[in-house]
Simulated scan of single mutants.
Amino acid sequence: MTASTSIIIRLRRLNRVAMAWFISWWRLLQFSTLIFSLALSPSSYNRQNRPILAHRLVSNTAPNLVWFSVACLLVGLVLIRIVVVSAQSYGLSRYALEMVVRVLVLELIPLTAALFVALRLTLPDGIAFAQMRSNGLLDKLRQQGTDLLRGEYFPRVMSGIFAVWMLAIASCVSSLILAYLTIYGFTPWALQGYTRVVGQIFNPAVVLILALKVVFFSFAVALIPLSSSYYPPEAHHRQRLFAAHGLSEMLRLFSVILLVEVASLMGNYY
């Protein structure tokens, strides 16, 4: 094989990789546009579609809300205790509460909620849809007149978004209560100082960044795993294993989550 032939082969391979990357993100944009169009359409919430959506919201959120909050409280209790003891040993007890709120509530809990929903709900749904497509089940449902986008994909995307919101909000509120009880104990006399410190942390800019981070986390978690399974795979990807499919979507999802997290850190501390 000559050097020119090797260069041509490498360029063709690079071109295929670049085109596959562009097509995957373009399909994600198309899928997101379709989902948001359905979300703004009143027909998506009529008497026929409302029970399916409500069932998906409840079944994907309620079973995970209680024990996820309990797990966050247990982990948060350990972290709060570590931070408080470390601050006391260095004579920085006055900064313990601020450090706990910034690390636990602003950073760890939203990120954990997004990753939990992705691993628990949306990534398995994406792999299941990809398997159904390879078996021809989605094509059969479409031929029978089933609206897959409205009846199958839209409820799952909305339930993924809703689950991230609910898990993040419930865990953040319970962690704030736990931080007060761990640091001050069961006394109402420290409530004024506690609310003053927390209010200084949650200024309008920080609240806006936290809200946007949770929203973008939920969009990434709900849309990315399901977008690729909505479109038929390319010819040279049809034999790809489902594990590889899930791994590629996981990598793409984690890269987006990382970018959102870095952007929020820059907004809060720069």
Score class of each variant (00 low, 15 high):
E152R: 15
E152C: 10
Y153R: 03
Y153T: 02
Y153M: 03
F154I: 06
F154T: 06
F154P: 07
P155H: 05
P155F: 04
R156C: 02
R156D: 00
R156N: 07
R156E: 08
V157Q: 00
V157P: 06
M158F: 08
M158D: 02
M158R: 03
S159P: 07
G160P: 06
G160C: 04
I161Y: 03
I161R: 01
F162S: 06
F162M: 08
A163I: 01
A163Q: 04
A163S: 15
V164Y: 00
W165C: 10
W165A: 10
W165E: 11
W165G: 10
W165N: 10
L167G: 08
A168W: 08
A168K: 02
I169H: 00
I169K: 00
I169N: 04
I169S: 06
A170M: 12
S171Q: 08
S171H: 04
S171T: 12
S171D: 06
C172P: 02
V173H: 02
V173L: 15
S174W: 01
S174N: 08
S175L: 13
L176A: 05
L176G: 07
I177A: 13
I177H: 01
L178I: 09
L178N: 09
L178Q: 15
L178R: 04
A179W: 00
A179V: 01
A179C: 09
Y180K: 06
Y180F: 10
L181M: 08
L181I: 08
T182W: 09
I183S: 11
I183V: 15
I183K: 06
I183R: 07
G185M: 08
G185D: 05
G185K: 03
F186G: 01
F186Y: 12
F186S: 09
F186K: 00
T187R: 09
T187K: 07
P188F: 03
P188W: 03
P188H: 00
P188A: 03
W189C: 07
W189R: 14
W189V: 14
A190H: 12
A190R: 10
A190Q: 12
L191R: 03
Q192G: 11
Q192M: 10
G193M: 04
Y194S: 05
Y194L: 00
Y194P: 13
T195R: 09
T195A: 13
T195V: 15
T195M: 11
T195C: 09
R196A: 14
R196E: 14
R196T: 14
R196C: 03
V197H: 02
V197I: 14
V198D: 01
V198C: 03
V198R: 00
V198T: 04
V198F: 02
G199E: 04
Q200V: 11
Q200D: 13
Q200A: 13
Q200C: 08
I201Y: 09
I201G: 01
F202E: 07
F202Y: 14
F202C: 04
F202Q: 09
N203F: 04
N203C: 07
P204Q: 06
P204A: 02
A205D: 15
A205Y: 11
V206E: 05
V207C: 14
L208D: 11
L208E: 13
L210G: 05
L210V: 04
L210A: 09
A211E: 04
A211L: 15
A211D: 07
A211H: 11
A211K: 08
L212A: 15
K213V: 01
K213M: 05
V214K: 05
V214E: 02
V215I: 12
V215Q: 07
V215M: 10
